[in-house]
């Protein structure tokens, strides 16, 4: 699934790095705990989180994540947006809850990480 399709499904707005139309997302992992994000392989995975700070971006960088859905209508600040651009990470801001975002993407065929 493309990043733009994910954004459409969760009625989100793409911010940070521009969406790479060639990037194919197969799996999702939902967590506000960055320590858990670092425990798993995140290839072709979108992170769904309500944690909206620079550490979300730094953790994504270390985990090789390229797409993060920020739920619960959290607003990234300028520092976070700049860091996302520098690290080439696309963020999708959504007003939906983490549960709803997860449900929508699961129904659309995105697989759980495990």
């Amino acid at each position: 699934m493309t990043i733009k399709e994910i954004a459409r499904l969760v009625e989100g707005e793409i911010v940070g790095a521009p969406a790479d139309d060639t990037y194919d997302v197969e799996k999702a992992f939902a967590s506000d705990l960055m320590s858990d994000v670092l425990r798993f392989s995140m290839d072709e995975t979108v992170l769904i989180t309500g944690l909206c700070n620079n550490q979300t971006m730094r953790t994504s960088e270390m985990a090789d994540l390229r797409v993060v859905v920020i739920g619960r209508d959290k607003q990234p600040d300028e520092d976070m947006l700049e860091l996302a651009q520098d690290l080439d990470i696309t963020m999708i801001k959504s007003k939906f809850s983490i549960f709803k975002i997860s449900g929508i993407l699961y129904e659309a065929g995105i697989k759980p990480l495990y």
């Binding site: 705990l33 960055m34 320590s35 858990d36 425990r39 700070n53 550490q55």
Partner: peptide
Amino acid sequence: MGYGAGMGLPN
């Protein structure tokens, strides 16, 4: 900040 779950050293 999203840390402090006791996973650091094991990881």
